[in-house]
Design a protein around this nucleic acid. Sequence first.
DNA 1: CTGAAAGCGCTTACAG
DNA 2: CTGAAAGCGCTTACAG
Lengths: 335, 335
Amino acid sequence: MKNRVTIHDVAKEAGVSIATVSKALNDINVVKPATKARVLEAAKRLHYVPNVMGKQLKSGETKMLGFYTNTISGPYFSPLVEAIAKEAEKLGYGVNVFITSDKQVIINSIMGNVVDGIIGFEDLIDEQDIAAIEHEQISAVFIDRKTTRKTVGSVVFDSFTTGEKATNYLLSQGHKRIAFVSGFQGVYDSDERFAGYCKALKLAGIPLEKELLLEGKFEEKAAFQAVENFLTQQKNNWPTAFLAGNDLSAIGIVKGLKALNYKVPQDFSVMGFDGIDLLEYFEPKLTTIKNPIEEQGRLAVHHLVDLIDNKTQGKSFELKGRLVEGKSVKKCERK
Amino acid sequence: MKNRVTIHDVAKEAGVSIATVSKALNDINVVKPATKARVLEAAKRLHYVPNVMGKQLKSGETKMLGFYTNTISGPYFSPLVEAIAKEAEKLGYGVNVFITSDKQVIINSIMGNVVDGIIGFEDLIDEQDIAAIEHEQISAVFIDRKTTRKTVGSVVFDSFTTGEKATNYLLSQGHKRIAFVSGFQGVYDSDERFAGYCKALKLAGIPLEKELLLEGKFEEKAAFQAVENFLTQQKNNWPTAFLAGNDLSAIGIVKGLKALNYKVPQDFSVMGFDGIDLLEYFEPKLTTIKNPIEEQGRLAVHHLVDLIDNKTQGKSFELKGRLVEGKSVKKCERK
DNA sequence: CTGAAAGCGCTTACAG
DNA sequence: CTGAAAGCGCTTACAG
């Protein structure tokens, strides 16, 4: 422990009790102005900064929000974390970022009062954990799933709707054989987008074909491999368009097609989801569903703080994505 | 304050004193095995998780590192923050990310014992602040400048050397008129790279020309504007190559040249610094100096923890960048 | 081997 | 308006 200035030093310097110092510093309106001035001056003279730990132990509050995730790599997290941190600061909170795959670390910091509430993007946490979180009356907002409990809310994208919308868009461009490049089974956005795809096909009277389902794992490499394997192993009944589970896997598809000397969109159309920043650097401009990532972060913080303040019960928010036309989809001329 | 299980509950449940609970839980080898077992069982039964605040207040440690920065947007920070967080976890620390431009927020959280030490990437903090940090015996590692004090170290890239190296590379390709696209004056990497550029020119006997200095502000838009203005306003004595202060501004230069219907590298060569991930998506492949960003994060954490543990005094580390040849530079054919 | 007590730095009823 | 005291949840000399 470094020898920091404590409330006692200030009290001595100002010639009052520590109780009075506390009141003066916290703007509790009982202190005589002259006394208050003396205290404030003394505090300044000594460069006093309150030790948050003492404060917290007493109040039970940390004024910290925890953001828990397995990884922040990839283009999705940078704007998300920034939005979260900025919004939190506005509301008087700091943000603790925990990048860990160790469930115990997560549990301990939640239960150990390290933070007042949590924002979760964490596959590891299952329904049972969420039940425990609710039971302990911990405020939490999840952004990787839909869930609503007394102290737990969520903010997700309308991935079912946009999955349908994206598929309909491809259908409207004349595509009838549309491959779907999935992310991970069990992951909300992945499942929802796929379900939307299925629904759109069904409404259009087009049967779902198993061969047209590739695994892209939401990343570039897997998608690249998947499309390469697919086109080299399967010799007929090719799709005319690929709907990828997210932009990264769409990029993988485009690169894979390029590697086999096909052109996008001349030979195949490709579409993604998310609207990540780096699309700006990629050719061709990808047609995608742009999701409001920053808004997700901001709303998650707001809702979480409301939960912490007991202003509301957990709610489930759904944010709308919008179609952005690029140059990676063209009208289908094949029959 | 939620009604969490405290050490008292465990003590009651196990039929011992809170002191014994504390010792049993912290593996202090004085407790009779049978007693310890009883305590551990009771703790498990009650789902006891120690309140870190109590612990911290006593120990004066938070086991938290603070990462302070104005922004984490841009492609540099995502791998940096991830590396920092992962390395910290390995060493038993959590990471607090503060994205703020409010100096008071920074000072308060440093002085208020929110964290055990800090990693700083923060223009706002000046030499005076660093002196204060040292005076308060706060452990800190800066990654945006070179500085060494008793409790303060730094981890930077060898930007002077690579600035020279990059310039020499362009010279070796026959370029004699090399424009430099600066970042911000006063920012370490920017100044050092420029100084290296100056030195290389001098050694080659090429005079520094003021007209060949553009302002790129380390970002794409400003660089785009700068090159556009330059080429439209200046009608002769054009450079044959642009050395940009970082990759983002190099991208801006390339896009600006493209917008004026010039080709890279046919008409102009362009080179950057950093080797950020998104170069993978950009055409043409940019020739750049690749800096070990993850290593910077890991080393910063290591050094910081050593400082916290009083194992060392502040040191200044310099990490080597290496030249990566892309397709954005070609031999100069003009005289 | 175990426990009562002091104390980490603060806030907040309560008394004066 | 001010201060002595209790207490937040823990750890750690110290006594037994």
